[in-house]
């Protein structure tokens, strides 16, 4: 879980179009969420360890590469959102890409993010996966 602020605003749109498209999320001062992230990886169980991958490695990677990058930050200021609007769709694909590039101990299946109790987003690249 991490907490961050964002503002949904596209430079490609007029102020009026931004207001219509993003509504309250276009507030120039931004607003925040507690994002809950679920990462699913898959693989064969290693006979020696009984593990798909060592959770310490997965926890460490997520802490270092995702939580430290985004927790208590303004998403609009991060490199991932220099070009893209920090919607939770784009956050989900950005986090998937970070894991896909850097976490090599198991196969990445998907990333699921709860933005609020009422909304969640899932992305698995080209993987076939079951929606939770």
């Amino acid at each position: 879980m991490f907490s961050a602020s964002h503002r949904l605003h596209s430079d490609a749109m007029s102020d009026a179009e931004n207001a219509v498209t993003y509504g309250k999320c276009n507030n120039p001062y931004g607003h925040g969420h507690n994002y809950s992230v679920e990462v699913t990886v898959s693989g064969q169980v290693d006979e020696a360890t009984g593990m798909v991958c060592n959770l310490v490695d997965l926890d460490g990677f997520i802490h270092r590469e995702i939580l430290q990058r985004f927790d208590l930050e303004n998403l609009n200021t991060k490199a991932e959102f220099a070009e893209a609007v920090p919607t939770t769709e784009n956050l989900c694909t950005a986090i998937y890409d970070i894991l896909q590039r850097g976490f090599t101990y198991a196969h990445l299946e998907k990333v699921r993010i709860e933005e609020t109790m009422m909304n969640s987003f899932e992305y698995g690249g080209e993987n076939e996966f079951v929606i939770e």
Binding site: E89, C92, T93, M118, N119, S120, F121, E122, Y123, I131
Partner: peptide, 9 residues
């Protein structure tokens, strides 16, 4: 492809 789930009660 991104999947989005909205809840309602």
């Amino acid at each position: 492809m991104v999947y989005l789930t909205r809840k309602a009660e």
